[in-house]
């Protein structure tokens, strides 16, 4: 996957931004990434007016019931090869409303996502970092952390006692 991306996206990618029922915080940070201090346009990234001109889709917000079919249509209208970025905690995992009655809970439940940029809202630097990771300019930094207390008997059979109190 990375090698195809490296060949296709060596130069600038054009993005189409869409808000699938977000609070607008992440959307402003995306626009902020285009303003003079962070200036995504020096990498050739620009916001386009039509999904048919775009290489990448920036999606924010936990998808609501009303937006869900329209988001699928939007995804189909972006031509291949395409990248999908889920920006913000709401898009990555549903955020604070992952189990609301009117929301699906995360963009990857509706369309396949290539890159996640968590944060509430993520700084414009974090968004630029995410796009740079996608383009192969820098390496990703975050890894899963696993810590365990030492000196005690190992956990052999993983039998949870009760259902996890905090649902996923």
């Amino acid at each position: 996957m990375f090698s195809i991306l490296e060949k296709c996206f060596k130069k600038s990618i054009w993005v189409y931004h869409t808000n699938a029922s977000a609070c607008n915080g992440c959307d402003i940070e995306i626009i902020n990434a285009l303003t003079p201090f962070y200036d995504a346009e020096r990498f050739g990234i620009k916001l386009v007016g039509s999904p048919r001109h775009a290489d990448a889709l920036l999606v924010t917000g936990a998808v609501s019931r009303q937006v869900c079919p329209r988001l699928k249509t939007l995804y189909k209208s972006v031509p291949e090869p395409k990248l999908v970025f889920a920006i913000g905690s709401c898009a990555t995992g549903g955020g604070i409303w992952f189990d609301s009655y009117n929301l699906v809970g995360g963009v990857d439940k509706v369309i396949p996502v290539n890159f996640y940029i968590p944060g509430c809202p993520p700084r414009p630097e974090a968004i630029l970092f995410g796009v740079a990771v996608a383009l192969g300019l820098v390496d990703k930094k975050v890894v899963a952390e696993y810590l365990k207390e030492k000196g005690f008997p190992e956990l052999v059979h993983e039998r949870p006692v009760a259902e996890s109190l905090w649902a996923k």
Binding site: G93, P122, E145, L147, P153
Partner: peptide, 20 residues
Amino acid sequence: DEFELSTNTKEDLTVTIEVY
């Protein structure tokens, strides 16, 4: 103060601890 958290797999975004 780490904010550069973007990744392509969701499993990277967990911190697990086990306490006896």
